[in-house]
Amino acid sequence: MTRLRLGLAAAGVFCASLALAQAGDPRRSGYQEMGPALRKMQDDDTANPAMLFVQAGAAAWAGKAGAAGKSCADCHGDAAVSMAGVAARYPAIAPTLNRAVDLDGRINLCRTTHQQAPALASESDDLLALGAFVALQSRGLPIAPPDDPGLAAVRTQGAALYERRQGQLNLSCANCHDDNAGRKLAGATIPQAHPTGYPIYRLEWQSLGSLRRRLRNCIVGMRAEPWDYDAAEYLALEAYLMDRARGMLLDAPGVRP
């Protein structure tokens, strides 16, 4: 009973902190745009389907992989300690590569260099599960992109892509998510496009998906040709969007309609 009460108190603190973050900030996350039913689904860790992937991710975290025979936990220890705030920082510059990588890229970098295992395929359940498990450790923390001068160029590229009109409908990201955010597109509310909940369990997908998949979705909706999955354009947009959402609280892994 005390444990339940503690859990309820923790949930209360989490909700209160979300409300606090809202005060005086015109930015609204996709979570705040959702109806009460979907918010409740996300807040209940036994009703949020993304938590099934977290369960799989926790198992993968502890499982040995690759020629090195090491698990994530062998180096990083308890994820609740070592991974707290990590998802709030990425994309960041990987020192060994001297270029920006997102969280999925960082996980694969660990796999190929430290575990000597093959990289996990983009958007595969295994990669999404590990990403969701790592992202969960940052839930409730503010998005804090690093002040790395190396990221400036990537963010500038992302900002330019965000403003650029493309596709047969001749729309830019900004046309919907800045100029018309909060209004309706068909029956759905247009969110402000702050990536606070990734990877998300999107009900339309009936599955977990990354920010890249969501960006591709929008690009197809604009009737433009989506870039390849590993294209630098997605990374640039991710870096720009995370910087734009600086200080907003992560609610990953989120549920979205």
Binding site: D44, A47, M51, F53, Q55
Partner: peptide, 24 residues
């Protein structure tokens, strides 16, 4: 399979309880 279940651990005799189950 990955399964998440939400059910009370204790109940009084005759209580109506809710069991919620999610499976991958």
């Amino acid at each position: 399979a990955n399964i998440l279940v939400n059910a009370p651990k204790t109940a009084k005799k005759g209580d109506i309880i809710e069991i919620k189950a999610l499976i991958m």
